[in-house]
Design a protein around this nucleic acid. Structure first.
Length: 832
RNA sequence: GCGGAAGUGGUGAAAUGGCAAACACAGCAGAAUCAGAGUCUGCCGCCCCUUAUACGGGCUUGGGGGUUCAAGUCCCCCCUUCCGCACCA
């Protein structure tokens, strides 16, 4: 049984033997009109566009170039409703710009490396390469079914060697510049995916992909030095980006200004504790220090009598997951090391503790603790009975026992020579004083970590490095690229990457000395692949460089970029970093890859984000079959504001389907003779204006509504105004419903394709209504609505209002003391 | 906890400080039809007046206050939801 909500009449819009005979009588007296059959029309126009190369975009034409990119998909095998929601409105916006007179490149490709393909290999025995190729073939078919204006000649596929060889080349360039390096660090390990992850790919302690709790492991891994660009990445000057994304990037980079200093450890000559603080002004209140449990100094400085307790605490901290350790509002724990540091400013010896509220990964993994002016230090000091000394005071006096930490500004007290200084100036003064004493100085710290790019998996770009016992870490020479991923490998559940077991891959002669050496078996994070694909679209087959500069200079940077908000700090930050790094190498000529960014909202199904891994994707195919791609495209745009996202409920699809049927009927019903209709002419002009503005701003929903209103009027109109209105309607509909528009364009006698027509122009004066409804209020309450000629002044409006008996009745006995007139809209008469 | 966005009919939603609910979905009624589907027309926030209709009137954008001739829109306080950050020194 079919549930009622989604019960559809048996209707196959695709070709059937008898379609030519199926006609309906739409008008009482008029001739019979063919039924709107999207299946036939869409197949016809997709084939014709293809034959004519309508979307083969030249690099140069008589029109200005415009580079419009929407994020390319992972080839999961099917374009689901979420993809349609992301892609078809973007396609509409690109088509609109094309009609506005731009030479618009709207390319597509596949982010084709990644774990799902490899997991399928392990579980189902499908080779990632074969599975991915099959998936891409199906998705290309689906893309054509959508009616997109993609220039497929420029398709980019990241898992093909002619793409990833440049990924490897870029790695070598970054390595040369010291921007790619190998280091041992505590890293995030996903036990389910059996690979390390970048910080950006860990969300609340869980793997971004599979939601498994992430473990910390000390591993030697490859990093891209994104932190070298931290300050520049903080700036979004000149970018037309959503504020939200900018804020997310700023938070992620997390710049803080302060000072780094070091205190000597008592009884350990040469040993110092380096720490970062944003409040050097409070240093006279530092009554203890705290090291992260993982801090390398801990074993050295721990006093013998504290050793057992310290070791136990460190072991516990290491075992705890990040989620447990960072749980908010957790009670403070910690252990004294028994060691003391010397606060050079106060000359006091202060105890050194370890506690897990200090993070190994931030700053130096050590802090000076100022309980009087930091909430966390306050809680810790209270719990362990450590001295709390006030050094910042709002009123310049000291106050004895503090009940809570004071974290605001004030003037310094108990701070020796700095007493009386405002805290803001003292920050700088004390940091500089520290520099004079040779124990540190001003310092800026970031939360952003370098980008961990190596993955212990097969289906990715091999990292072009060879390890030689004699020569060490040796980059693969450029001329030996690509380092090809071997096809013939064995996939096993769990364990290492298949590459580590592939002797013919691993064993290699050292490029430097020729002796036996071993290849790096890690592959690159797939976010590396997608961090530069936009440079490849202009000429994806260029084999001399990662970018065909001659072609790319005509397009780059990307004028409009659309995609999901989930990439705010992942893809978008990485892509900006790569752009800047290669700009500094002279390979790119612009500072930012994406001039304008817009995020579509998320389309959810029953409250959950649609994704293949969650198993709740909704297939568009049945809807395309029943209503056609044009109806579905239109519905994607009509559901609500595109940037807000929506719950997937196909019920409303019936509305856009009916609308397109009305357009069809209206456009093909012969027009009776009649006089011009100035009111309809005005509506046509206003609709053109509305569509022009709305499509430029991605306000698809109100644009569709305006076309519906126009169509509802045209339905009952006659004469030349109707003919002109239909022509405008077909042109305005073209970016949204490209197949239907082209069919109607042909049938109403248009030449070539509707997609090669200019966007209709409008005349501001003609768009203004000739008669308007004047709302007359008395004391702010609506009393009457009067039709008057547009352009009447206040006197005219008041004269018209005086004629209204409803207004007179409301004014009975009262005298008008003031009047407010909004021309052509409203008159508010205010009485005593 | 900090930062941001949002809260409007049965539903999706619309509204440069100037007629709240455009445009649709669902629903109801009618036309046409042997009948259904599709199509077309009308109704479709709440309350009151009225036997009922017609005609009227009042209220209504999460709650409370304010600014204004006029507030969904601006300001203040509160509630709720969603998103981001979250022991970041």
């Amino acid at each position: 049984m079919v549930p009622r909500k989604v019960s559809f009449r048996p209707r196959d819009t695709h070709a059937s033997a008898s379609w030519e005979g199926s006609v309906t009588d739409e008008t009482k007296a008029g001739p019979r009109i063919e039924r709107y059959q999207p299946g036939l029309i869409e197949a016809k126009w997709q084939a014709r566009w293809n034959e004519r190369g309508l979307y083969d975009i030249p690099d140069q034409s008589d029109k200005p170039n415009y580079y419009f990119v929407t994020m390319f998909p992972y080839p999961s095998g099917d374009l689901h409703v979420g993809h349609w929601y992301a892609i078809t409105p973007s396609d509409c916006a690109a088509r609109y710009l094309r009609m506005r007179g731009h030479n618009v490149l709207f390319p597509m490709g596949f982010d084709a490396f990644g774990l799902p393909a490899e997991n399928a290999a392990i579980q189902k025995g499908i080779h990632p390469s074969d599975g991915t190729e099959q998936n891409m073939a199906n998705m290309r078919r689906q893309f054509r079914m959508m009616g997109t204006m993609i220039d497929w000649r420029r398709e980019v596929v990241t898992c093909h060697p002619d793409y990833y060889r440049w990924n490897q080349w870029m790695f070598l360039k970054l390595f040369e510049k010291g921007l790619a390096y190998r280091d041992t660090a505590p890293v995030n390990w996903c036990p389910k995916d059996r690979t390390v992850l970048a910080n950006e790919q860990v969300v609340n302690g869980l793997c971004e992909r599979c939601d498994s709790p992430v473990e910390k492991r000390d591993l030697t891994q490859w990093f891209y030095r994104i932190t070298a660009y931290a300050d520049e990445l903080l700036r979004h000057d000149g970018l037309d980006w959503p504020e939200r994304v900018r804020v997310m990037q700023e938070n992620w980079i997390g710049r803080s200004e302060g000072a780094e200093m070091e205190f000597a450890v008592e009884g350990h000559p040469g040993a110092t504790v380096r720490f970062f603080t944003t409040r050097p002004d409070t240093i006279y209140g530092a009554t203890f220090m705290v090291l992260a449990p993982e801090h390398p100094l801990v074993p050295t400085i721990t006093a013998p009598e504290q050793q057992a307790e310290v070791e136990a605490y460190v072991a516990r901290a290491r075992a705890a997951s990040d989620i447990d350790r960072t749980a908010a509002e957790r009670e403070k724990t910690g252990v004294a090391t028994g060691a003391y540091a010397l606060n050079v400013f106060t000359g006091e010896r202060i105890p050194i503790w370890i506690a897990d509220y200090v993070l190994a990964g931030y700053g130096t993994g050590a802090i000076m603790a100022v309980p009087a002016h930091d909430e966390r230090d306050f809680a810790f000091a209270q719990r362990f009975g450590i001295a709390i000394r006030e050094v910042i005071s709002v009123d310049g006096r000291t106050h004895g026992d503090l009940r809570e930490a004071y974290t605001g500004p004030g003037s310094l007290v108990n701070s020796g020579p700095f007493d009386g200084q405002p805290s803001e100036t003292a920050k700088k003064a004390i940091a500089e004083d520290a520099a004079r004493h040779g124990i540190g100085g001003p310092k800026v710290t970031y939360r952003l970590r370098d980008w961990l790019i190596s993955r212990q998996r097969y289906w990715g770009t091999p990292i072009p490095i060879v390890y030689c016992d004699a020569c060490g870490t040796v980059p693969v020479p450029e001329q030996d690229l690509p380092v090809e991923l071997p096809y013939d490998v064995e996939f096993r559940p769990g364990g290492d990457s298949p590459l580590t077991r592939k002797d013919s891959f691993v064993n290699v002669a050292c490029p430097r000395c020729g002796k036996a050496a071993r290849r790096e078996t890690d592959t690159m994070d797939t976010f590396v692949d997608s961090s530069w694909y936009i440079y490849r679209y202009p000429n994806p087959r260029h084999d001399r460089a990662f970018i065909d500069r001659a072609a790319a200079e005509r397009w780059l940077p990307v004028a409009k970029y659309t995609g999901g908000i989930e990439h705010a700090i992942l893809h978008l930050l990485y892509a900006r970093f790569m752009c800047k790094a290669f700009r500094d190498m002279g390979e790119l000529w612009f500072d930012e890859p994406f001039v304008q960014l817009r995020n579509q909202g998320t389309i959810v199904f029953k409250g959950r984000k649609m994704s293949k891994s969650r198993g709740n994707v909704q297939a568009p195919d049945q809807y395309v079959q029943r209503y056609g791609a044009d109806s579905l495209r239109l519905f994607m745009m009509f559901m609500g504001p595109w940037t807000e996202g929506s719950d997937w409920d196909p019920a409303g699809l019936e509305g856009t389907w009916r609308f397109l049927n009305r357009v069809w009927t209206t456009a093909l019903t012969p027009v009776d003779a009649g006089p011009r209709d100035p009111a309809l002419d005005g509506l046509v002009q206003r609709t053109i204006k509305k569509l022009t503005d709305d499509l430029a701003e991605y306000r698809f929903n109100t644009a569709v509504a305006a076309l519906m209103e126009l169509t509802n009027e045209l339905l009952h109109a006659a004469g030349p105004s109707r003919t002109d209105g239909i022509r405008a309607l077909v042109l305005l509909l073209a970016p949204m419903a490209p197949h239907l528009a082209d069919e109607l364009w042909e049938r109403i006698g248009g030449t070539s394709s509707v997609h090669e027509q200019a966007w209709p122009a409008y005349d501001e004066a003609a768009a203004r209504p000739k008669t308007v409804t004047l709302v007359v209020q008395v004391d702010g309450k609506v009393r009457d609505r009067i039709e008057i000629a547009a352009g009447a002044g206040e006197d005219g409006a008041r004269a018209a209002a005086a004629q209204s008996h409803k207004v007179s009745a409301a004014l009975a006995g009262a005298s008008v003391v003031r009047a407010f007139h909004v021309p052509d809209k409203l008159l508010n008469l205010v009485t005593k």
